[in-house]
C-alpha cells in the first residue's frame, strides 16, 4: 500500500490489529478513491449518515405514535409518508412497514435468510439478531425465545413472527406502558428500548 497521503483522517484505528475484512475494505476503498470513483468526503459523509441512525430515532417515532393517534394511524397505513411529517429524511428509506403490538397480537421481527433490519430507523442490528440461533429458533419456537428475552405473553395473545424475507422492513410499535397518560413525548421516548421495537422486549415502565 502507498503511504497514507490523502487529506482525510484514517478510518481504521491503527492502534489495534485489523482483521482480514478490514484490510480488504481499506484496500478497495483506497483504490476507489485513488481512481476517482468515490471521494474520501463521500465515504465519511456515508459513515456519518449511518452513525446518525440509531434506536433513538425509532424511540422518537414510537413516542409520537403513542402520543398522537392520528399520526399512529398514518404511520401504520403509510410509514414513509408519515415519517415525512416528522422531518425524517425518507430519501433512502427502504420499504418500511410499521406494525402495532396490542393485548391480542405480539409481533416479533426476524430475517431468517440473512440480517434484514430497519437500519434507516434503528441503525446497526445487534449481534444476536444476526445469529443462527435467533434466526432459526424464533420462527419455530417464538414463545420460548421471547421467554429467554424476559417477555412473557398470555396464551390468549397471538404471537405473530414477521420474517423479513424480501424488500419490506418492519418496525414494531410496542404497547404503551400503563401510568404514562400524562407523560410528554420526550418522557415517552425514554421508555422505548431497541428490543421492544424488534418485539423481543417490552418498553421500560415509568419510574
Amino acid at each position: 500500500m502507498t503511504a497514507h497521503d490523502h487529506d482525510h483522517a484514517p478510518i481504521v484505528d491503527p492502534d489495534r490489529p485489523v482483521s482480514e475484512y478490514e484490510v480488504l475494505e481499506q484496500a478497495v476503498r483506497e483504490l476507489l478513491i485513488e481512481k476517482g470513483v468515490i471521494t474520501a468526503q463521500e465515504v465519511h459523509a456515508q459513515i456519518d449518515a449511518t452513525d446518525s441512525r440509531n434506536p433513538a430515532l425509532g424511540a422518537k417515532i414510537v413516542a409520537r405514535a403513542w402520543a398522537d393517534p392520528e399520526f399512529k394511524a398514518h404511520l401504520l397505513a403509510d410509514a414513509r409518508s408519515a415519517l415525512g411529517t416528522m422531518d425524517i429524511d425518507t430519501g433512502n428509506l427502504a420499504e418500511l412497514t410499521v406494525v402495532e403490538n396490542t393485548p391480542d397480537v405480539h409481533h416479533v421481527v426476524v430475517c431468517t435468510l440473512c440480517s434484514c433490519y430497519p437500519r434507516m430507523i434503528l441503525g446497526i442490528p445487534p449481534a444476536w439478531y444476526k445469529s443462527t440461533a435467533y434466526r432459526s429458533r424464533v420462527v419455530a419456537e417464538p414463545r420460548a425465545v421471547l421467554h429467554e428475552f424476559g417477555v412473557e405473553l398470555s396464551d390468549k395473545a397471538e404471537v405473530r413472527v414477521l420474517d423479513s424475507t424480501a424488500d419490506m422492513r418492519f418496525l414494531v410499535i410496542p404497547q404503551r406502558p400503563h401510568g404514562t397518560e400524562h407523560a410528554t413525548e420526550t418522557q415517552l421516548s425514554e421508555l422505548v428500548t431497541r428490543d421492544c421495537m424488534i418485539g423481543t422486549g417490552l418498553p421500560r415502565q415509568p419510574s
Binding site: 420462527v139 417464538p142 414463545r143 396464551d155 390468549k156 395473545a157 397471538e158 404471537v159 405473530r160 413472527v161 414477521l162 420474517d163 423479513s164 424475507t165 424480501a166 424488500d167 419490506m168
Partner: peptide, 9 residues
C-alpha cells in the same frame, strides 16, 4: 398457541 402465525413476504 394454535392462534400463533408467521408472516413472510
Amino acid at each position: 398457541s394454535a392462534a400463533d402465525n408467521l408472516d413472510a413476504d
